[in-house]
């Protein structure tokens, strides 16, 4: 059974995904590459704000591309409803950020409906849940980017089925939710500490040194939450994954994303389009 793409993966969509991801990578990982003479090194606490203003633009470009260029009413409705489900279950999560049930929805959505749809779903779900709780802050663009990657990668994983698929999704869910926590830490690392603390990044320092500081920052701040979150996400995937995945796949069949439409006249077949 091949992967369904609720948003067709055309060359331009792939290109946009790659371009947006490249900008995203820089927005997260800039402390490791910034030159000591760069303006960003002087304004380390301002740089995240700059990225927080730039990221919405590139995510908007991608969403316009995905929703306007490829998806029809079915894709947009499916996007809206799954984003609503993810938004609705977010408060059920444990802990401060409480993202586990939401992650499971994003994981299954990206898995069943393809990577491009997955990216749109991840970022949109973060956006709507922030709007609903009026939590639009500087962290939001980073969350949208990271959640987009999270769901997109679920659609890029190998096409296994049955138990192997659930095992793979569990492992992915655990690792990816850990990574999500690390990425979010990375995004506010310069912002929360500024420069001049023992854990702040040092512009131009060797990669290993900055990595060490970042890892220590992770351990000091959020590892206590990240690990239980990873375990919970994997457990929820195990418990709910199989039947929910079947439910999403059943719905995509009912939505008839790629069912052919045929017209016949009484005498002969005249036309066909997919």
């Amino acid at each position: 059974m091949s992967q369904l793409h609720a948003v067709p993966l055309r060359a331009r969509t792939l290109g946009a995904l790659a371009g947006v991801s490249a900008v995203g990578v820089i927005a997260f990982f800039w402390p490791f590459v910034v030159a000591p003479t760069s303006i960003a090194a002087d304004h380390a606490t301002d740089a995240p704000w700059f990225f927080a203003l730039l990221l919405p633009l590139v995510v908007a470009v991608l969403l316009a591309e995905v929703s306007g260029g490829g998806a029809d009413a079915k894709g947009v409705a499916m996007l809206a409803v799954l984003a609503a489900v993810a938004t609705a279950v977010r408060p059920l999560g444990a802990g401060v950020a409480g993202l586990e049930p939401m992650f499971v929805v994003l994981l299954l959505g990206g898995r069943a409906l393809g990577p491009a749809f997955g990216f749109a779903l991840g970022s949109l779900a973060m956006f709507t849940s922030a709007l609903l709780t009026a939590g639009v802050g500087p962290w939001l663009p980073f969350q949208m980017m990271a959640a987009g990657w999270f769901a997109m990668a679920a659609g890029l994983l190998p096409q296994l089925r049955g138990r192997a698929e659930i095992a793979m999704l569990m492992a992915y869910g655990a690792v990816a939710s850990l990574l999500y926590g690390f990425l979010m830490n990375l995004s506010f690392w310069p912002w929360a500490l500024g420069q001049g603390s023992e854990l702040s990044f040092v512009a131009g320092a060797p990669l290993a040194e900055n990595l060490g500081r970042w890892v220590t920052f992770n351990i000091a701040t959020s590892l206590g939450w990240d690990i239980p979150r990873a375990i919970l996400t994997a457990t929820l995937t195990l418990l709910a994954g199989p039947v929910l995945l079947r439910a999403v796949r059943r719905a995509t069949r009912r939505a008839a994303f790629d069912v052919p439409v045929r017209f016949e006249t009484v005498e002969s077949v005249t036309s066909e389009r997919a």
Partner: peptide
């Protein structure tokens, strides 16, 4: 961004 906007409005009223 009209299409995304529609998806957002629907998601907000459905959640």
């Amino acid at each position: 961004l009209y299409h995304v906007g529609v998806a957002c409005v629907v998601a907000l009223s459905l959640a």
